[in-house]
Write a protein that binds this DNA or RNA. Sequence first.
DNA 1: GGAGGCCTCGGAAGG
DNA 2: CGAGGCCTCC
Length: 781
Amino acid sequence: MEKHYLENLNDPQRHAVECTDGPVMIIAGAGSGKTRVLTYRVAHLIKKGVDPFSILALTFTNKAAREMKGRITGMSGDEARNLWMGTFHSVFARILRFEAHRIGYPSNFTIYDTDDSRSLMRAILKEHGLDDKTYKPASVLGRISSAKNNLLSWKSYQANDELVNDDRLTGRPMIGTLFEKYVSRCFRSGAMDFDDLLYNMYMLLKNHPDVLNKYQDKFRYVMVDEFQDTNHAQYLIVRKIGARFENVCVVGDDAQSIYSFRGANIRNILSFEKDYPDLKTFKLEQNYRSTKNIVGAANSVIANNRNQLRKEVWTSNGEGEKIRVIKSVSDNEEGSIVANSIFSEKMNGDLDYRDFAVLYRTNAQSRSLEEALRRLNVPYRIFGGLSFYARKEIKDLLAYFRLAVNPSDEEALRRVINYPARGIGKVSLDKLIVASDQTGKSLWEVIAGLAQETAGIATGTREKIRDFAAMIESFHVELKKKDAYELASHIASRTGIIREIYNDKTPEGVSQYENLQELLNGIKEFSENGLTDLPAPSGELEEEGLHTLDAFMQDIALLTDAESKDDGDTDKVSLMTVHMAKGLEFKQVFVTGLEENLFPSQLSLHSREELEEERRLFYVAMTRAERRLTITWTSSRYRWGKLIGCEPSRFLDEIAPGFLEAATPSGTVSPEETVWAQYPARPKGNGIAGQRRQKFTARKLTPVSKLQASGGNVSAGDFRADDPKEIVAGMDVEHQKFGQGKVVNIEGEFPDHKATVFFQGLGNKQLLLKYAKLKIVNRDR
DNA sequence: GGAGGCCTCGGAAGG
DNA sequence: CGAGGCCTCC
């Protein structure tokens, strides 16, 4: 560590770092060096001789934990490895596995992700004959989730008049019962959902004084990042763990609290002051990120919020450019203005594409922006979207791994009992579930101990079920004998998954196959090196020997980071929602869609609290910009296929005029005037009411990254089918999914004529020509 | 069992 | 409009 590392800090930052003992709250304004203070504080503790094993640092995302740990390692060296630094969920999962026996769970419990929870809830609804329109799984689970986050058990829920009344009033009196069923099904499956990791952690500490004692004693220093995002359960757990030494340091910014919709409770900041009377509060108010114009404009907006802590963010940076506000007449024009502006500023300036970000309130807005960027060949990357582990093929294989570790895992079992197809159909499965319900046994117990007389399942099917159970059992037995990679690849081939997907020669199939290979490669790397992020709860060293599959599976459900795979070309414009942009910074930022009912969202307009959260969201958006901020809005846009008129957002009026560029009238930065000229004809400007979208906007998009990933020759966007009447035997044709093939035969009469087409690698396919979209590649016979 | 049709719904999203 | 879930038909 550098000798005078404290000199890298300004006064409030340094005070916050040096004040290591006793309760501390750091209110960190946007761009004020929050991460720097957190990392320095931990490094400082280590420097002072505090054992890293006794420092607990909790974050919300894996990314934040990873980055911070990396930076601390940079300052303090290898010792940082022993820090307990991770997300709330991963740290608690680690502890819960260690103490699982206390609460009746196996230590290899499964962690259900949102899909698992949903599928379980759907199953429960069906079993109870409840209509999933009235009882929408996601909304029922939402009620359960917020109960758990407020530390309410199903019993307390059912005993709570207010909640029960609410449910009766909304016509869903069964939610309390569903809560109970859901919890017992999870328990029977040896599974916890994300909320259970918090709920059970709290109950573990509350009901087991010796356990509480152990962890209070162990964690002498506790730190919490993004404190404004904590929910009630997280808050109480932190308070409990920190109760012995009271060396609890929380860092946050009330002005950037944008997650109340998922349970974050901004009042925790106020409770914290009440709970710790000798609390020391530090305010980081100097912004190092942005120009005076940007900081001033953002301040003027957030000043409209009534609920906030007093704080004055300032900067010694230069004035910079004024904020641009640009009006357009359609979402398409908004897109071209943004794209055009990026294109020309990249040309004229010292900026790379990666210095630009385009932000929006809702994902649906990305379409017109993408189209515009693509037309100018501006490379971009969309953040968010499907994580690697959320892909179907990955989840299928992981389901087998989950079963190998914990055969009681009902969701995994249901997912793969007939995938790849092995003749155990829906009817048999329903019978098994009925048997499970009647006996109170888990689905696995029913299957594993399948009695001769079980509820009228045919002998042949029973045989198949037995084979399946024996296969899972054999995987289970191998867990400790083989290393993760050996077992994983054995499972992949023994179950037939690999073969199934290898035989699928469609572009999708090929990409699925590559993804499975990537997963297996990751496991191989784990087998060789291990990858545990957190030290073992007891503090002793990791056991020597094999890196087994169950060890690999421990944290995998918690790795939900959206894919951040670089295809080598990282110089791209970033497109993302404002929520995703929190914590990031860019030299130039475009905030789009500043219209009433969009930003602020119309769903936020009925309460002051929600409107203030929207305003904080806009504040977050503005403060992402370092040098230049551009805000756009349009007077009409397509929403759900319909063209609607839009009014400018009230937030625009809240920006103090002194920070704004003189008004830019609509069309001043007209695309036609500049680079547009070089590109294919585009209908003249006024996209106002009535005008249909042009063909290029109606086309389906294939993201640039995907094109590259698949070798550049998949162009779903350009696929145009030919008239089926023209197709005759002998032609070469192309199918959107199956690729190129040769028409072997045509039978039947138009419009019911059917073609037999031979596709390379796929064999003959029967295609009804009135449905199958075929493009003629070669008319020669 | 799988593909395609029909219906519904529509805010943001970490673990 | 487009995605996702369920249902139906072959």
